[in-house]
Design a protein around this nucleic acid. Structure first.
Lengths: 218, 218, 218, 218
DNA sequence: TATGAATGAGTTTTCATTCAT
DNA sequence: GATGAATGAAAACTCATTCAT
């Protein structure tokens, strides 16, 4: 496990397929990112040192620096990967939800999905941990922008033609939604209690039918 | 043993005033807390080491441990003090605001006040920094509860008699408001940009007059 | 040896006098400098890591940083101490040597002394090692200046009244003498062969009597 | 095993010329040596890691070890090449200079040439950096010998027939000259100030005409 | 020949905390 | 109450070198 060669998966990949079932053909960079993800999830940002990641992934500390140059860069790559995966999932699912009501249901479902997969934990840890580090903060906030833009799109569709169209700035509201989502994640994660987030989604769900006529999605 | 000296400066403070000659200087514990606050504000959570606090306060590192036993405990005491000060300020101001509209105006004013005084920076740093540390997280979240309770009271007053009274759970909504506030703080702090938070407050302010009749505070 | 208290030698110094014979009353900073000196002498500049110094001195690595802040600063302090000790020795001895001949004899004697005590090794290592480090180079060269100034004084005395007085710039010649001394040190140290340096001093000694009349020191 | 490939690029160079298409590029070993030279010159001995050399030369780190077995060996090969080039230059030029005066002028010119080309920097870095490493020191000093021998020859020619012939040992004096040259290089390089070396050469130049009659080269 | 990947041992430095005084 | 000194553990990162291909 320690000294095994990983790179170069042209012919040898064929052989490796036999060897294991799930994490095959994962390149070394991917393996490192996976280890970083797992460490963030299990040990929190503060516990995610190069040593801890390497221990969890079963590889040498130095490998991180060989592939990513910097621990920060690995962390950001991990955030990027998670973020990209979730983004495509959100884009697909929200695209199919047409009415306000459906969108709320879908968002609730995705939230629960994120919760189960640990993405919420990892993103919460990354955002929170980066806050106090001047070198990471700006990078992390830059990675929030796509989410705000995406949310802005969803909100824009909803508002179009409604009575709020002129009163509400979709970009500002999108910022608020992302901030709320983040705050809920943090607080829920912080005390290991998802019941309040769950109640919030259910409250929103209960309001869905009332909102539908207002937004004209019937 | 070490921690025994902690938490009994009500009576002894009386003595100190007598003991010191003229200028009744803040007690040592207060001085340490002030130094911790200043360090959190200027250097961020990650930069707030025992050494950094001691350097800023002009006292010896070991003094922190003598008085607070643990760096974590000092940090929590600092959060407590800030939180208590702000809470009384919020309680007084929001008590005087009667209508939804007034409450929004007051909340906006208090937010700006917190921004200028650095309380938002310090709280953001504390919450975010603690999140990644299993020993601090639960303690910090416990200190959020009073704010949720306070917000719940404010919301409860508003909802009483309105058409939402039965549809909305004040506790859940209070949780959402605090989460939103926290999320906005974090994001604004993260990229040193308060303009979006400001836009959000202004959007809320613009909606105030429309909301007033709904809530029957006219 | 490991956990022993060192500082605070007011009353306890009395007790310590009994405990050991030579390195008593040496403050911790001195002990660290001595360990650094010994390490430079025995293991060379490249081998003088914080760990190596601490191992040799029997104290904790971190103590170096507590007292000197930086490894560089410890190294420079070590050079300073050695340099100051040798300077006073040179000043005294050369002051007593009046004629050219005597000065050459004295210089030879001092060189041999330096060789035996390891000062030449340490200075050679420091100078050479610093060369390739931009942070140390300028500091080391600054510590060469006093030696050039001292040499300039010695040369100035010799030249005064001689036929060379107008032809030779004492400062330039002093630079050359120090450079020669350094070069001889380096080469001798490099191949562990002092015979050529010795031969050089003897050649100079043989020329002494011939030079005396030229400089008018008879 | 690794080192077997070292040192036989005379015949194989012939083959290479044929093998590569048109632009007979320098052999790989030469390219590596050139990269090492450039790195020593630009980044100093301490900055001349295998990675730094490879980066500068645009080739793979491992190539160094394939061709030279050891980083030390590459460094020594680099010193060898530089040294050999300079030696032939010195031999030619000094051979043409007959009188003391001319020899001083020529040496001054060559020194300036070395300064401009960076050879002095590289040699200074190599000598100084090696000094602190037991594995390099002896090798480097061995590479000084040819220079001492060469200088001995030059001095021997000068002394022949002069009044110093019996008093001065040419070998010892040659050692002193090389040591002086080295010391001047180091000090000048150390504080990025060549003015003192320049002054020294000019002082020597000014004395040239006076020395000529003594040595009988008129 | 050449290379990308990998590694073990090393580096300086910072940390929270303890202890004797 | 307060302090200077001391420590063990850990941090991020770099090094020369090896190896399979």
């Amino acid at each position: 496990m320690r000294g095994e060669a990983v790179g170069k998966d042209r012919a040898s990949a064929m052989l490796k397929v036999v060897r294991e079932d799930d994490d095959l053909r994962s390149s070394t960079k991917d393996r490192i990112i996976e280890a970083a993800f797992a460490t963030l999830k299990e040990e929190g940002f503060a516990g995610t040192s190069a040593r801890a990641i390497a221990r969890r992934g079963g590889f040498n500390q130095a490998l991180i620096f060989y592939h990513f140059g910097t621990l920060n860069d690995l962390l950001l790559a991990t955030l990027d990967k998670t973020s990209a995966e979730r983004m495509s999932r959100y884009r697909d699912s929200m695209g199919e939800a047409l009415s306000v009501d459906e969108k709320i249901q879908t968002a609730t479902r995705l939230y629960r999905e994120d919760l189960g997969s640990g993405h919420i934990t990892v993103i919460s840890e990354m955002v929170a941990g980066s806050l106090s580090r001047p070198d990471l903060g700006p990078e992390v906030v830059a990675r929030m922008e796509p989410w705000i833009a995406f949310t802005e799109g969803v909100i824009g569709d909803l508002l179009a033609g409604s009575i709020f169209e002129s009163a509400v700035n979709p970009r500002t509201l999108a910022f608020a939604v992302v901030a709320l989502y983040l705050g809920v994640d943090l607080l829920s994660h912080l005390d290991h209690d998802n019941s309040r987030a769950e109640a919030l989604f259910q409250m929103a769900g209960a309001m869905g039918p009332f909102l539908a006529p207002i937004f004209g999605n019937d």
